[in-house]
Design a protein around this nucleic acid. Structure first.
Length: 360
DNA sequence: AACACGGGGCT
DNA sequence: AGCCCAGTGTT
């Protein structure tokens, strides 16, 4: 079934389709390794539509490896604010400095060196070098997993180790000799525009007659779904502690969610006892961490959000009548005005709280 | 092999 | 309310 003739048909039809149907995307304008790198990191687990504005702002401010390498981490994170998976930004910044130090400021062009950079795994290394330099390297990610699973009529969970291995091999076996970058992009474009998860558009698919899943009508069965993650409900509280015009904020440390980002003092509440108890609990935590005493009026407002596998209800409290001196804390902590907070990289909920305060 | 890591778009 | 998204790194 996947003989030489099948493959050459597949390549030809896919590339022809791509020539006519590829979207205009900013990282497709000039395909340098640097620009493809930025786009690929941003696109990890993040949809194209979300990335476009971030990519344009980021490459405008940091057009080259060395401009990125020289930047303060705060500024890099600020441009990343809202994108999520902030480790991507920190690792990319670190990688830029490695490229300056160890590769003479030129983005490396051999697979092993690229793979060795922080934040770059097998997919991203292959994507950068194939798309920017047309190197013959396979890719495998969300779109292609689904596409290949259907082409192969894979009857078991494509995310198991064994099936991943088979999918990588399939991806490699499909590569054309030339136009590898276009080919890899075409695979992903087809996966996102035609071979989508729900109700794939097989009627207009350029390779529908090469796809046994389409021929047999098994689109809803393949790919086999992975076991689903269950959400856990969490109750958290954030405290807005005012002193004159300034508000207490802290920088999240290693091991915490939102590492390196700024946030309001935040605590997890075990269950939902009396509001009175919560207030006392929060005050005790605040005192313990910062040495500050305060009164609590609130909750001011509530918001719901989801991160990773948690559904979080966040109660925002307001502290008043602050006394005591801010002691040395485990993580950087400081008093900042709303104007200063605007300029700092914040967690998304921290940003929402700040905006809300501004409107009050 | 299982988890942690974010947030938003879409059904 | 789920599912999904141009994944990587750690345990």
């Amino acid at each position: 079934m996947y003989d030489t003739k099948w493959k050459s048909n597949f390549r030809r039809k896919l590339l022809r389709w791509f020539d006519d149907h590829q979207r205009d995307l900013p990282w497709r304008e000039h395909k340098t390794p640097y620009r493809i790198w930025i786009s690929e990191i941003m696109l990890q687990q993040t949809q194209v539509a979300t990335v476009i504005d971030y990519f344009n702002r980021f490459t405008k401010r940091f057009p080259t490896v060395s401009t990125l390498a020289q930047a303060k981490q705060e500024e890099v994170l600020k441009l990343w604010e809202g994108l999520g998976y902030y480790r991507r930004a920190r690792q990319m910044h670190a990688a830029a400095q490695i490229i300056v130090d160890q590769h003479n400021g030129k983005f490396p062009t051999d697979f092993e060196s690229v793979l060795a950079l922080p934040g770059i795994g097998r997919y991203t290394a292959g994507a950068i070098l194939s798309i920017a330099l047309d190197q013959q390297l396979p890719i495998l990610e969300g779109n292609t997993i689904r596409l290949f699973a259907r082409l192969m009529t894979m009857q078991s969970d494509p995310r198991t180790t064994n099936n991943q291995k088979a999918l990588w091999e399939f991806s490699e076996s499909l590569l054309p000799r030339k136009r590898c970058g276009d080919f890899n992009q075409a695979l992903m474009e087809l996966g996102s525009q035609i071979c989508n998860p729900k109700r794939p558009k097989c009627l207009v698919c350029p390779v529908n007659n090469l796809c046994m899943t389409s021929v047999k009508g098994l689109q809803e069965q393949i790919p086999v779904a992975s076991p689903k993650v269950k959400y856990e409900d969490l109750l958290e509280a954030a405290i807005v502690v005012n002193k004159q015009e300034r508000i207490l904020i802290r920088q999240c440390g290693p091991g915490e969610r939102w590492e390196s980002l700024w946030d309001f003092p935040r605590y997890t509440l075990t269950q939902e006892p009396e509001a009175e108890t919560h207030a006392q609990l929060l005050l005790k935590q605040l005192k313990k961490e910062t040495g500050l005493s305060a009164e609590l009026s609130g909750p001011l407002f509530q918001m719901k959000h989801a991160v990773t596998r948690y559904r979080i209800t966040l109660q925002c409290w307001k502290g008043a009548g602050v006394t005591g001196r801010l002691k040395k804390t485990q993580t950087p902590t400081r008093w900042a005005t709303l104007g200063e907070i605007e300029e700092m990289p914040m967690s998304v909920t921290g940003r929402k709280i700040a905006r809300k305060l501004k409107s009050l």
